[in-house]
Design a binder for these strands. Structure first.
Lengths: 215, 215, 215, 215
DNA sequence: TATGAATGAGCATTCATTCAT
DNA sequence: CATGAATGAATGCTCATTCAT
C-alpha cells in the first residue's frame, strides 16, 4: 500500500516536472515552435519519457490549460465561501484572485487559445476535454453567484448574473490579451497593472446601482 | 509611367487575391494547420507565386492582421469625423464600427494573436512591423479622442481618455475571445451578440457621469 | 495537349523510377528494415518527392505487388489467346509465363505477402485495393479457362477448373517460397529450377487423364 | 542437482509461457506491428523479463518457428515409424500430420517467412540458426524416406524421393499461403479445406504409378 | 511573371532494450 | 529473478521554400 502510494506520488511529481518544463518552453518559444525535444531537455528527461505521461503534444498543452483553470477554480471557490463579505468586498477579492491567477501564469489565455483548433480538440482524450469544459463552466457559475448576491442585496444592477460574470471575465481576458500584444509590439511592459485598475473601476461603476437619476 | 502604374495596380490586386484566399483558409483550418499549398489552391495560384508577393508565411499572416487594422482605422476615422454627433451617439457609432470589423473577419483577434511569438516577429520585415505598430497606436488614439470629447462635455467620467479607449477595446476583444472559446468548448454559438450587448451596456453605464449621489 | 501528355509520361516515369528503387531496397533489406530514406537515396531523390507519387510506404509496397500481378495478367492473357494450341502446349506456355514472372521479380510473393496485415490494407487507397483484388481474380480465371478447355477435350481429369488453377498457382508459389527459404537458410541457390521442373511434372501427371500404364 | 533441475524446468516453462503469448500477439497483430510490451502484457510479465529468456525480438520470433518445426518433426517421425503401413496409408498419415501442424499454428509459414530477411538472420544466435537448419532438413528427409518406400514398392513413380518431398511440402505451403491471401483480399474464409483436398488428390494422382485408365 | 516539381530539414512519435531497484 | 520506468535512436511523413523552365 505504502509503495503504491509512493509510486503514485512519484508519478504526479513527474507530470508536474514535465508541465513546468513545458510551460517554460511554450512561454519562450510559443506553442508551435516548441519541440518535444526542447521540453524533454528542459525537463532533463528523454523525449520518450514525456509520452509515458502525456498522450501527445496537444494533450500536454491542454493539461497546462486545465491546471490554470483548476487553480482559478480553487481561488474562486475560496472567494465565494466568504459568506459574510459585502458584495463590493467580494468583487474586490474576485479581482485579486484573478490577478493572482494571471501572475501564476501569464500565458494562461494564450494556452487556452490553443484549444480553439477543432483539430487540436480531436486529439484530446475525452476525459481531459470534459474536465476542461466542466471546470470552465464551474468557474463562471461561481462568479455568477457572487454577482447574484450583490443583485439580491440591491447593490448591483438587475442583470442576469451569468452575463455579469461573462463580462467581468471577458474584460479581464481582454486586458491581458491587449497587454500581451502591447508588450510585444510596443515594448510597453507596464501597461497591464494600470489598465486593469481602470478597467475594473469602470466595470464596478457600470454594475453599481446608482441611487438616483440614471437610465 | 502609365505602364508602371498599371503594373503596380496589378500587383496590389494579386496581393489582395492571395490575402483573401489566406483569410478563408486560416479561418477554416487555423493558422498552423493551414499550408501554403492550401492557400495557393484557394487563390487558384501556384505556391511559388505566393512567394513573389509575400516573403514568407508569417509575413502573409501579419499582412492579414495589418489589413484588419487598416480597415478598423478607416472606420474609426469616419466615426471621429462626425464632429456634430453627441458623445453618446459617437460611442454607439464606435460600437457599430468595431462590430463591423469583427464581422468583416472574426479571426482578426486570433490572427493578431499570432504576432505574439517573438520568433514570428523576427521573421517580419521592419516595414511591416512598424506599419502594424503605427496603425494600432493610431486606432487607439482615435478612440481616445472620442472619449475625450465626451469627458470635456461632462458626459463621461473624468478619466485618461486613452485608458477608456483601452478598456473599450479590451472589453470588445475579451468578449470575442470568450465567444470563440464557447463556440468550440461548449458548442454555444449564439453567445456573442447578447454578450456584446450586455458588456457595452455595462461599459456605457460605467463611463457615464451619474448626475447625483455616487462616487 | 502535347505538354499535358509529356508531363503525364514524365510522371509515370518517375513512379517507375521510384518503384524500381524500392524493389531493390526491399529485396536487399526486407520491407520493414527498408526506410523511405534508403529508397529515396537509391532513387536519387529526396524523401519528400516519394510522397508526391505514393501516399505512404505501405502503398508503395502494394503498388509493387500490383505491378507484378499486372505483368502476370498480361502474360496469362497472351497464353489464353492462343486458341489453336493443344491443352498440353498451353499448360507448358502457362508454366513458362509464370516462370518469367518469377524471374521478372523473385520477391513477388514476398511482396504480396505484405498485404496480409489488415492494418496495412487499411492504409491502401480503395482504388489500389480493388485493382489488386480484381487482377488477382482475373488471373485465376484465365488459368481456369485454360484448364477447362483441356477438360472439355478430355485431356485433363474432370475437376472444377478453378480448383485446378488454384492448385497450379499454389504449387508454383510454394516452390518459390521454399526456394527462398532454402536460399537463405541452407545457402542452396540452385534448388529452384529443378524443383519447379519436378513439381510441374507431378502436376501434369496428376491432371492428365491416364489412358494406360506409364512410368 | 534436484534444485538445478527444478530451476531448469521452471525456466523452460517460462519460455513456453512467453512463446504462447507471443504466438497469440503475432497472430492478431502481425509480426512487425506487435510490440514487446504487447507480448509482455499477454504473458502477464514485464518487458524486461522477456529479455531474460530471449535475446531479442527476432530471436523470440525465430524460436516460435523452431517450435513449429520441432512439432512437425515429431509428427513426421511418428508417421515414418509405422513400418507396417502401406505407402498410400503413409501418405495419408503425412497429410494429416501436416494439417495438424497447420492447425496448431496457421501462422507457421508466415513466421517462417520472417526468417527471410538477412538482417533478421544476422541477429539470431548461431545455435538457434543451426537448430532451424537441421530440423528443416531432417523433416524433409523423413518425408523423403516415406516416398522412397513407396517408390521401392513400385507404388509411386520413380523419382528422386527428396524432390517428391519438396513438391509435397511446397504444395501444402502454397495452398496455405494462397488461403491466407484469399482470406484477406477476397474475404473468402472457407477456401482452405477444399483446396487442400483437391491439391492432394492431384498430387496423389501425380505420383501414383498408373497401371490403367482412371477418371 | 508564373509555375509546380523537388527539396530536405525538421518533428512528433514509437518501441526494442536496459538497468537500478 | 523480476520489474517497469526510462531511454534515445530511429523513422515515416510534412511542408515552407526554392528554382529551372
Amino acid at each position: 500500500m505504502g509503495i503504491q502510494e509512493r509510486k503514485e506520488r512519484e508519478k504526479v511529481r513527474r507530470r508536474q516536472q514535465i508541465m513546468i518544463a513545458a510551460k517554460r518552453v511554450f512561454s519562450s518559444k510559443g506553442f508551435s515552435k516548441a519541440t518535444m525535444e526542447d521540453i524533454a531537455k528542459e525537463a532533463e528527461l528523454s523525449p520518450g519519457t514525456i509520452y509515458l505521461y502525456f498522450k501527445n503534444k496537444d494533450e500536454l498543452c491542454a493539461s497546462l490549460s486545465l491546471r490554470i483553470i483548476q487553480y482559478l477554480n480553487i481561488r474562486l471557490k475560496h472567494v465565494s465561501s466568504e459568506k459574510d463579505a459585502k458584495p463590493e468586498e467580494q468583487i474586490e477579492a474576485l479581482k485579486e484572485a484573478i490577478y493572482d491567477v494571471y501572475e501564476f501564469d501569464p500565458l494562461m489565455l494564450i494556452n487556452m487559445f490553443h484549444l480553439q483548433s477543432s483539430e487540436t480538440l480531436k486529439n484530446l482524450s475525452p476525459q481531459l476535454l470534459s474536465d476542461i469544459k466542466e471546470l470552465s463552466g464551474s468557474s463562471l457559475e461561481i462568479m455568477a453567484e457572487i454577482f447574484e448576491k450583490g443583485i439580491n442585496k440591491g447593490v448591483f444592477i438587475n442583470r442576469e448574473p451569468l452575463s455579469l460574470a461573462n463580462t467581468f471575465w471577458a474584460l479581464f481576458s481582454g486586458i491581458v490579451l491587449l497587454g500581451e500584444s502591447k508588450r510585444i509590439i510596443s515594448d510597453n511592459n507596464d501597461y497591464l497593472e494600470s489598465a486593469l485598475k481602470v478597467a475594473f473601476e469602470i466595470f464596478n461603476q457600470g454594475i453599481k446601482r446608482c441611487t438616483s437619476s440614471d437610465s
